[in-house]
Design a protein around this nucleic acid. Structure first.
Length: 590
RNA sequence: CGGGGCUUGGCGCAGUCUGGUAGCGCAUCUGCUUUGGGAGCAGAGGGUCGAAGGUUCAAAUCCUUCAGCCCCGACCA
């Protein structure tokens, strides 16, 4: 218990003002703002966590900021634990650095450029590779100083074509970005692994359901890259997730589809040409022939790199994966579906009746399509299909390849489990940059023999503001937000009923409020002169994990009502045990 | 950048087609009553109808131009 003797001035200030609802002049609203599309955006606006200033640019209110700061604190603790060193880098950066790295030209309109009063060019940093590499090349002189990892938690600006979903895809956002510097690839790999472990700890601590997803290194290059995706239906990315012990997860377009394990069964029906007037799509054909899409084969034609066409066959119910298809020999990149005219010239038939039999162009068949027996396919004649088609018997065995998107139920490429298709929100991305920036910016150290060597770099980002939105996407109900304990703006809300009229309710509320603060629990005292319904609804909208009601009724019975945010029913707690019980519940979840 | 939609008090909307000088709900303020799931009654304040120009006796309403915002797509990864 704090007494006037052991309380310092700041304690007094805080207990008087900081965590009383009546001192937070932020309104909650019942109606959904028309601008908000996704649930996290709606709830953040309704609960008063953020306010929009311009497209993709938001102010954070005191309540919202508390959650954002908790995210940042977890990130900071876990980064520090790895030995990474925090820095703060400029948001406004001179164009010269970006010209040196080549990204002044590469970046395009997403890079916000501006001029100062001397007409010098600057950018508002969308990311900080250039600045950090500049710092590193000035400070790091010897291999003895390596490895080192600098990180910062900073505002960034990317002039997105279409900002949307509130802070989920804003233009201005807060990101933790870290950059590691190494003398060699082995050290980079170690640093990368350490970051990967730290990321898993962070997202686990935040109470989020997430996966580390193998990602394309893309134009950035490098050898290894993983995205950290929070699983939520509203996510912008589609990922294939294994339910097995392999914990496999990959972006849909990068997940390999394994060839079927079972052998193709033997043909049992004879090849028949059937009249299928006007039936062009797989769905129409399957329905007309009283079968299902899984027993059909579809044939797509693409233009070749040096003219001509290339055919790709998939099972009727499968989708082409463009990234995989582009790797086929002789195919035009980017992938280009052949026009009607080109198809007609190659086959004498229009699309809709194409099939693998009698084709004169190169043919690649997806593994699953190759496993078909007695299947339906086009006959390369208008209004004609075949039934009972079989590879090897009616057609030569073709060249097989992985050409389709994986579907739910496929075996996991990780070796254990089956895949499901989920949506994800990318909240983190780690990759090994190698020497891309260090080479461009000439960042070198002297090695053991006194020879200058270019440093290896790794780069590790986390979207702090986006995490707040992602946590809400994953944790909400009809009444509002349900914060994971570690991200909640407050752990406990004390709902004082009729405190303005009942001195004993007021006194007990104040007492509990002080006691909870004394044991370092983030407590919000709802001391507003409002009706109970408003207080309950607001507490639920704001998503505070633990709610305690202080009322005359409770004081008389010696028991206070406790309710966990996810629970449907109240619990009656002896007033004397309230503090210890809350301490236990909150400690066990942190 | 292409397509669609929107812009009226702090928020959500009606009014626009058919021109006549702006209204509803929520929120805010005052008073009284009420106090365990977004109260009732009475009263009050608050809007140059996104901007500019035009047509007209008269424009939120019709015409032109511009701006901002939202959605879909493309782009980016």
């Amino acid at each position: 218990m704090p007494t006037p003797d052991n309380m310092c001035a700041s304690d007094t200030l805080e207990s008087q003002y900081a965590m009383r609802w009546s001192r937070y002049p932020i309104n909650t609203v019942k109606e959904n703002p028309s601008e908000a599309e996704v649930i996290s955006h709606q709830l953040m606006l309704r609960a008063g966590l953020i306010r929009r200033l311009a497209a993709g640019i938001y102010s954070w209110t005191p309540f919202g900021l508390r959650s954002l700061r908790k995210v940042e604190a977890i990130i900071r603790e876990e980064m520090d634990r790895t030995g990474a060193l925090e820095v703060l880098l400029p948001a406004v950066q001179p164009a010269e650095l970006w010209q040196e790295s080549g990204r002044w030209e590469q970046y395009g309109p997403e890079l916000l450029r501006l001029k100062d009063r001397h007409q010098r060019d600057f950018v508002i940093g969308p990311t900080h590779e250039e600045v950090i590499t500049d710092l590193a090349r000035r400070e790091l002189k010897s291999y003895r100083q390596l490895p080192v990892n600098f990180y910062q938690i900073q505002v960034k600006f990317r002039d997105e074509i279409r900002p949307r979903f509130g802070v989920m895809r804003g233009r201005e956002f807060i990101m933790k970005d870290a950059y590691s510097f190494h003398a060699n690839q082995e050290s980079l790999q170690e640093g990368y692994n350490a970051m990967r472990t730290a990321y898993i700890r962070m997202f686990t601590r935040m109470g989020l359901e997430f996966r580390a997803v193998k990602a394309d290194t893309g134009s950035i290059g490098g050898t290894a890259s993983e995205e950290f995706q929070v699983l939520a239906d509203s996510g912008e990315d589609t990922i294939a997730v294994s339910d097995g012990k392999d914990l496999y997860a990959a972006n849909l377009e990068h997940a390999p589809a394994l060839p079927p394990k079972n052998l193709r069964s033997l043909p049992s029906t004879k090849l028949t040409k059937v009249h299928t007037p006007g039936k062009k799509s797989i769905v129409e054909v399957a329905e007309f022939l009283d079968t299902t899409a899984e027993h059909t084969l579809k044939l797509l034609m693409f233009t070749g790199a040096k003219g001509g066409v290339i055919a790709i066959a998939l099972r009727g119910d499968h989708e082409l994966n463009a990234i995989k298809a582009q790797k086929l020999p002789g195919i035009a990149v980017p992938l280009n579906l052949a026009t009607k005219e080109v198809v007609f010239a190659a086959t004498g038939c229009e699309p809709g009746y194409l099939g693998p039999r009698g084709l004169s162009c190169p043919l690649f068949v997806d593994h699953a399509a190759l496993n078909l027996t007695d299947f339906v396919c086009g006959a390369n004649e208008k209004d004609q299909h075949y039934t009972g088609m079989n590879w090897g018997r009616d057609l030569p065995e073709p060249q097989a390849a992985d050409l389709r998107n994986v579907v739910a139920g496929d075996s996991s490429p990780g070796g254990d489990g089956t895949l499901s298709i989920r949506r994800g929100i990318e909240v983190g991305h780690i990759f090994q940059l190698g020497k891309k920036y260090s080479e461009a910016l000439n960042a070198k150290v002297l090695d053991e023999s006194g020879k200058p060597v270019t440093m290896y770099m790794g780069c590790y980002g986390i979207g702090a503001t986006r995490i707040v939105a992602a946590a809400i996407e994953q944790n909400h109900d009809a009444a509002g937000i349900i914060w994971p304990e570690p991200l909640a703006p407050f752990s406990v809300v004390l709902v004082a009923l009729n405190a303005s009229k009942s001195p004993r309710v007021l006194a007990l509320s104040e007492q509990l409020y002080t006691e909870l603060q004394a044991v370092n629990i983030d407590v919000l005292l709802d001391d507003r002169d409002a009706r109970p319904g408003i207080k309950f609804a607001d507490a639920e909208l704001l998503g505070i994990p633990h709610r305690l009601v202080i009322s005359d009724r409770g004081i008389e019975s010696g028991e206070l009502e406790y309710r966990q945010r996810r629970a449907k029913e109240n619990e009656a707690w002896p007033t004397t045990e309230v503090i210890t019980r809350l301490q236990f519940l909150i400690k066990s979840k942190k």
